[in-house]
């Protein structure tokens, strides 16, 4: 049986592929955005070492 390029199965697969592609794109954007927010508010900054004055007190 031959299937022409616009058979229903192509439409169904296109819908699934497009949906998955957009979901993955949105996921990347969300992770990027979260990273920017967390880095810019200092969530990942290492603990500050005490200064010489603080250390002697």
């Amino acid at each position: 049986m031959s299937l022409n390029p616009l058979h229903e199965i192509h439409t169904r697969r296109f819908s699934r592929n497009l949906g998955l592609g957009l979901t993955l794109g949105a996921f990347i954007a969300i992770i990027f955005g979260l990273t920017i927010v967390k880095v810019s508010r200092g969530d990942y900054e290492p603990p500050r070492a005490p200064t010489a004055t603080e250390a002697t007190q």
Binding site: M1, S2, L3, H7, E8, I9, R12, R13, S15, R16, L18, G19, L20
Partner: peptide, 26 residues
């Protein structure tokens, strides 16, 4: 050639049950 589409499982009723994105969303 799209071998997977021409395989026996898709030459009968098989592909009619193939889910669309909306089915997973549902």
């Amino acid at each position: 050639s799209d071998v997977s589409i021409n395989s026996p499982e898709f030459t009968g009723q098989g592909f009619e049950g193939e889910a669309q994105f909306g089915d997973f969303f549902a």
